[in-house]
Computed example of a mutant assay.
Amino acid sequence: MNKEMTINCIRSVGSITIPKEVVGVVGRRTFASGGGKAKKGSKGGGAADAAKASTLSKEVKSTTVGGANIVKDGIDPKILSDSEYPDWLLHLLDKSSSLSVLRRKNVETLSYEDLKCFVKLDVRARIKENNSVSAKN
């Protein structure tokens, strides 16, 4: 994947919206409202507040990472241009080769990163094999 595709994937994750109906189906905890009738002048208005919250402009949705704020009084961070992100960030989504692919290659011609990956995956496979053999005994 190239850099632009990676950043576009990250941007698209931030712009995912979930309809109210889906959230209601997943789980909702309700309490008795004291007789079933709302009093005049009550401060309820939950449905009106929900409608206001979901009407963010499309411009705000496309320029910010929704839900990434962890500070109580903070705001969601803005999406920056690709050149403003560090190079290592774009390599986080790179897929490494699988153990079967690395076993077919000549170990002496592997790059350092591929060799590290091969050793890690080979050790993991041997541990799994040893555990399965000892579990049967």
Rank of each mutant, 00 (worst) to 15 (best):
G34E: 11
N106K: 15
E21I: 05
E129N: 06
A51I: 13
I10M: 05
I16S: 09
V60W: 08
T63Y: 08
E59M: 04
S81V: 10
V119G: 02
I10K: 00
F31R: 14
R11S: 07
V119I: 15
A38I: 12
S62R: 11
P86A: 07
S54R: 14
D76E: 01
D114E: 15
K116H: 08
G36W: 01
G46V: 11
I79K: 09
N137S: 14
G66E: 04
R103D: 11
I16C: 04
K58M: 04
I18T: 13
L102V: 01
E4M: 00
D94Y: 03
E84T: 10
S111A: 04
K58L: 03
D49P: 02
T55Q: 15
I7C: 02
G41D: 08
L99C: 04
V133Y: 04
L99W: 06
K52H: 05
F31H: 09
K58P: 00
G67W: 05
L80I: 10
V22S: 02
G44F: 12
E113W: 03
T63L: 09
S81R: 13
S33F: 04
D49C: 00
I127A: 10
K40Y: 13
D76W: 00
N131M: 11
D87E: 15
D94W: 05
D114P: 06
S134R: 15
D82Q: 14
K20G: 11
K61P: 09
S98P: 05
C117N: 12
S62P: 01
K39D: 06
S97V: 10
D122A: 01
K58Y: 03
K72Q: 11
E21R: 05
F31S: 08
R103I: 12
A50T: 14
Y85Q: 04
T6W: 00
K105Q: 06
S81G: 10
V65I: 13
M1N: 02
K52N: 05
S62A: 00
V60F: 02
T64G: 03
L92Y: 01
K40P: 14
P86G: 12
C117M: 07
D76H: 02
D87G: 08
D94M: 02
G24V: 08
M5I: 08
V13E: 06
V23R: 03
G46I: 07
G14M: 11
G34C: 02
T63R: 11
N69K: 05
S98C: 08
V22D: 10
I10P: 00
P86K: 14
V26Q: 03
R28G: 01
K37A: 07
S62W: 01
T63C: 10
V13I: 15
G24Y: 07
S100D: 14
M1G: 03
V101H: 12
A38K: 13
T6F: 03
A53N: 15
D87N: 06
D94Q: 09
L90Y: 13
G45T: 11
T17D: 08
G74A: 09
E4F: 01
S132A: 15
